Simulated assay, not measured.
Amino acid sequence: MTELKSNKIKAGIIGGAGYTGGEMLRILVNHPDVDIAFVHSNSNAGNFIYEVHTDLFGDTDLKFTGELSTDIDVLFLCVGHGDARKFLESNPIPDHIKIIDLSQDFRLGQNSQLENKKFIYGLPELNRDAIKSAQNIANPGCFATCLQLGLLPLAAKGLLNSEVHISATTGSTGAGQKPSATTHFTWRNDNLSVYKVFDHQHLNEIGESLKQLQPAFNQAVNFIPHRGDFTRGIFASIYLGSELSEEEALKIYEDYYAGHPFTHVTSRNIDLKQVINTNKVFLQVKKYGNKIFIISMLDNLLKGASGQAVQNMNLLFGFDERAGLRLKATGF
């Protein structure tokens, strides 16, 4: 009997022991079009993956490795900010391998090139066609994804004509796996605080994307991030002055996201549990007086990180955009 060759692509993961690496593994072990070739971790080389990501016991017998292989089709960089560029400078990756970087190293236009490698900003609701023909992807930040999806439809119509005000709360996983004073359970539990007021690094991404759709945009984006007393998710409240009626605003949002399978628009009240553990974004659009009010929410580790990276991979390789990402929300 002739052995059938697999049509699956081979994926490698750098930094597989952290939060984004773990989420990447949870998606890819069940992805119909992907085989995981290796999962790299210097600190855990030789250990079973399920010894670190204990929920994967029974799903995979792969071990972490300290070795790299170029016998892959796609490489995910799930490393810290600044480390992705260093890794690629120290470990030249052949041009036939597509790279999806989850750090902030290549997101901004001025930083999107590394020698002959050009990185496309990987927000499918903004750059889907460019992503499909790209070789390398800079995966957007979690806050950046959440806030941009709340504003892009207005920018596409040239309707961001006043200051934008945003208050958003993120779960503790947004700070990464390395323990710190503000992620320690005893500090985070039953607590709330603000940080990086008006100066969050994701504002640069947001500004570039809004100007891509509305080049004349020159208004302030006033962003107040909060640390929340929960593990995962981002809940953002956005408002700005507008002459649109609620019906007009809703239609603009529904038309913009028509055909985008993960972004859903409603005028009904929404809550964070509806999107946790999914790659979905829910947007609520309302009108109060002379202001448009938008709630945008997502799971920071999925649509805000690893889920969106897999969505980008699906687009790069011509798979169903939803492959591996039909995930159930927490619900309760």
Rank of each mutant, 00 (worst) to 15 (best):
Q274A: 15
E3W: 06
T266Q: 10
V79A: 07
H200E: 11
G109R: 13
N191K: 05
M24S: 15
V79C: 09
E205C: 09
G233S: 06
K98E: 04
D229H: 01
I137F: 00
F230Y: 09
Q212N: 08
G324T: 10
S180C: 13
N116C: 05
G289E: 14
I294H: 05
T231F: 03
E205I: 04
D190G: 00
H200Q: 12
G176H: 01
L108Y: 02
S133Y: 03
F64A: 06
G46E: 05
S162Y: 08
I137T: 04
T170L: 03
D199Y: 09
F57G: 00
L316V: 02
E254D: 06
V275C: 06
W187P: 00
Q135D: 14
A155N: 10
V34D: 07
P261S: 12
G80V: 03
A220F: 08
F317D: 08
K251A: 11
H81T: 10
L283F: 09
D229L: 04
T60Y: 12
P94K: 12
V39Q: 06
G318F: 03
I97W: 02
I276E: 04
K10A: 13
I166G: 02
H184D: 09
N91W: 11
Y239W: 15
L316Y: 01
S296L: 04
N42E: 09
H260K: 14
V275L: 08
F332I: 04
G16L: 12
I166H: 03
E125L: 07
F282V: 08
A156S: 14
N111E: 10
L159T: 05
G58E: 09
R322H: 00
F223T: 01
Y257C: 10
N7I: 06
R227D: 02
T145F: 01
T173L: 02
I270R: 09
E208I: 08
L68E: 09
A45F: 12
A130F: 06
A258P: 00
L315Y: 01
E163R: 11
D190A: 05
I131L: 05
V39W: 02
T182E: 08
L149P: 02
I9A: 14
P153I: 13
L250H: 08
G304Y: 01
G12K: 05
N42L: 12
V52Y: 01
K86V: 11
Y50I: 02
R322F: 00
P215Y: 06
N204D: 14
I93H: 03
A45Y: 09
L114P: 05
L203V: 06
G304V: 00
N300Y: 00
E243R: 10
D255G: 05
V194D: 07
F48D: 02
H184W: 04
F230W: 02
L114H: 03
N222Q: 13
T54L: 05
A305K: 00
N222I: 12
L126M: 10
I120D: 01
A45K: 14
M24G: 02
D271P: 00
